[in-house]
Design a protein around this nucleic acid. Structure first.
Lengths: 346, 346
DNA sequence: TTGTACGCGTTATCAA
DNA sequence: TTGATAACGCGTACAA
């Protein structure tokens, strides 16, 4: 089906109208199921359109109408975390699948168009996106604040803010499950190593950890919460070494803020001749695909990434289609304890 | 900066023109650095535009002009492999970064718009994308054939076809490096377990493997190449068990078609009380992030994902901007041997 | 520089 | 009711 250099001339609504001896307006109505059109005409148009594969130009349509069937995605502004981050990639994937099923598509919001630097909000206006998903963001980013406070429907699977719908894991419950598990294993001296608290998840888990430990009457010295410098393996590794230097005696269990941190934590412990789980236990958070293939396989709190993405899509599309006023609303998605070798014999 | 429900009225080129007592055409020229405009006028316009943050509507612009500064991405059609696949996600990430630096953005090509089923080509025409990246595709997919044979510039980081530019790893070299390594380790009985050969990478590695083994005079019974059913851990696991049943005695080394397969291979061997690397060695392919954290850490052939993505971006953008006729062209990116524990003592 | 036709649909208005 | 007409959305490009 080689078309050579010259493209097949594109069929426009006028071509269709002309071929059928109708006006463009009438064809438009049929295509969009709007307005009144006679039955036989409607049928003629539908058949022609189907047969010849006419589809309205996306750009012309968006230019005129309210909706673009496009969702802008804010993926990352902080710390070179990209599509390669398994947790966020999973969420994005399931969100993408869900909106595509409803005829929407996703585009990544960037802060420039051609040569112009735009704010996220300007970008959205410029592209007329129908809604915005914040997969990962920082509440102090003025760009994000602007979008969230604007008239554009938004949903986040990460941050929580005024006027913003969020679909997130129940982190309090996650920490509770983790500590229940720890207590069942007979652990009392527990350390929490988490990532930068500029990230909501990390901050929330750290807060929940402290509160829970107190309520349970477990020891909570200052060193019991260690903040790693980044998101990845190396950050977890380094934070662990730092922590071990601070304490007289290693804790019985370390709860990590994420699986990736946990991987680094485990290796750091091993480098100090501490065996996991025999000498010290480790728990992760997220249950990314690799957690079960790690050695020792990682006990963790599973976040339901698929559900988070799907629910976020539902919430956002309803907000778009019902045009209701924006308000803060948090949907908590249950988490689940996954027991593996790193806290026992697997 | 709460804007409430009613959006700030959008500023159009007419508003700008009116405010400055000029015509829209003049403003357009300034904004696009095209055509002749007087110096002082140009300056006045630039200042006004900067101050008030006017940006041309993307849709109106695309509607009229040749370029959309948009690249369509074909990510996956086969086997539920999504953004979660670390190898392809890495390539896409670096491609995305590279094109964004040049003012382009990416959109995922899907096969429907609203209610209409479109072919990829129709979709591209409909959206006026400037070019297409095929991150992963099947050469027998008519949708892909149509795009590739069309007038739209394309580049692939996966498949190889007529009229298509490809930026891929030098798999022959990769297999050669792997077998050199194997021979240096004294291995002669080598098995290759790879994924579905509908995927170019797997097919090419399998072919290279057979050829190289023959040239080296190493044994190449039929069972020496085992095709797994899928891309992931489980496929590797099952293929290994199947292979072990076929052979009288396990090979000395297994070369996997990908790291993910290799993970499954290793665990399958262990389940049969074969230690890696003591009893049998295993090599992966790709060097995804996790390969070095696996136990045993995985020796592998590193594909330069970052470079593949970046080069693909360069090739595609040149093709777009120079509008040269399409032809087949393969850019091979060097690979690298990474020695770790799974083939020695690490 | 400006005027204006044009790109391609959508939608409000109007005639039949 | 049915369908046609025309203005509109927002820029671009070319003639004047």
């Amino acid at each position: 089906m080689w078309k050579g250099d010259q493209a097949m001339k594109k069929m426009t609504i006028k071509d269709v109208a002309e071929a059928l001896g109708l006006s463009p307006g009438t064809v438009s109505k049929v295509v969009n199921n709007s307005g009144r059109v006679g039955d036989k005409t409607r049928k003629r148009v539908k058949e022609y359109v189907k047969k010849h594969g006419y589809v309205a130009s996306a750009n012309a349509r968006i230019l005129k109408s309210r909706l673009s069937f496009t969702i802008g995605v804010i993926f990352s502004d902080i710390s070179h975390v990209g599509l390669e981050h398994p947790f966020f990639a999973s969420i994005l994937q399931s969100f993408k699948t869900a909106v595509e099923e409803r005829g929407y598509e996703i585009v990544f919001i960037v802060s420039r168009v051609g040569e112009n630097e735009l704010t996220y909000y300007q970008w959205c206006r410029n592209k007329k996106v129908d809604g915005v998903l914040i997969v990962m963001g920082n509440i102090n980013n003025p760009n994000i604040q602007e979008v969230v406070q604007s008239e554009i429907p938004c949903v986040s699977t990460d941050i929580v803010m005024d006027n913003l719908q969020s679909v997130i894991s129940d982190d309090k419950e996650g920490v509770r499950l983790a500590l229940d598990h720890a207590e069942n294993l007979g652990c009392e001296h527990i350390t929490h190593i988490t990532g930068p608290t500029s990230s909501r998840g990390f901050a929330e888990r750290a807060a929940a950890f402290s509160r829970e430990m107190e309520e349970r009457g477990l020891p909570l010295p200052d060193e019991a919460v260690e903040i790693a410098e980044g998101f990845g393996f190396t950050s977890g590794y380094n934070a662990t070494l730092k922590h071990l230097k601070k304490v007289a005696r290693p804790p019985e269990l370390i709860l990590a803020g994420s699986d990736e941190l946990a991987f680094g934590i485990v290796r750091a412990l091993e480098s100090k001749r501490l065996r996991v789980p025999e000498d010290i236990m480790v728990m992760g958070y997220d249950d990314i695909k690799f957690a079960k293939h790690f050695t020792p396989s990682l006990s963790t709190i599973r976040q339901n990434k698929e559900k988070i993405g799907r629910l976020a899509a539902e919430r956002l599309l309803s907000a778009i289609e019902e045009r209701r006023p924006k308000r803060k609303e948090i949907t908590k998605v249950p988490v689940e304890l996954v027991k593996r070798q790193s806290t026992g014999r697997g």
